[in-house]
Amino acid sequence: MSSDSFIELKNVSFAYGDRPILQDISLTIARGKLVAIMGGSGSGKTTLLRLISGQVLAQKGQVLVNGQDVGRMSSRDLYQHRRRMGMLFQFGALFTDLSVFDNVAFPIREHTRLPESLIRDLVLMKLNAVGLRGTEALMPAELSGGMARRIALARAIALDPQIMLYDEPFTGLDPISLGTIALLIKKLNDALGTSAVMVTHDVHKSLEIVDHVYFVAGGKIAAEGTPDEVRHSSSPWVQQFVQGEADGPVHFAYPATDSLAQAFGIKGETA
């Protein structure tokens, strides 16, 4: 792989108990690039993010971040690793008992010993970056979904991370908020030079902003390429996903072991 790769997964397998989630996955994310991982619900996309953040450990293979294996880190190294990392959760995961200001200030206060005046400046800067300066006194319950997501983004970038992980950043947003978040993700990535991984199933918006796309299906990488390559891919699987068709290489029905007739108890019929 190229020496420029910042995050690298080598032959990673992962299972929850007996249920395999990822099988022998390899992928690379270059320094400073924004990469999308797409796939249907339950395809193991979020597990990929958790592997990178060290929340779960691979049973086989290596997860390398900046050359270090996340799976072999001591808890001290893991905390160091996470301090260089920002993560935007699916629904923001803002701390409901803290104000907007305290939410954004949270990572700064936990990890630095900066004076309060400097923390204030930093927080206002980050809020300004997501276009929500003036909301600092509000509580998370008073924010709309899109605003909460942007505040969560401000909190994730509070310590200027080298890696950004986005877990379904577009879920449950109206088109305008969705556009705003997408624009912010793109802008912040360019401005901060972070390497970013975005897990999503929103194809069209993602293709506009990312540098590279991996498709995950059945625990494996099904396809990959730049947005242009993906749009013009001849793979029926990619086409089904991009076009959003109900049936295709990915079947509509869950692979049941018996036929519907058997399930209804009608004897003598086999699928």
Partner: peptide, 13 residues
Amino acid sequence: ATEQLEAMSVMAV
């Protein structure tokens, strides 16, 4: 339930 604890541990707290 709202992933706040997880968010915290991902923030190395």
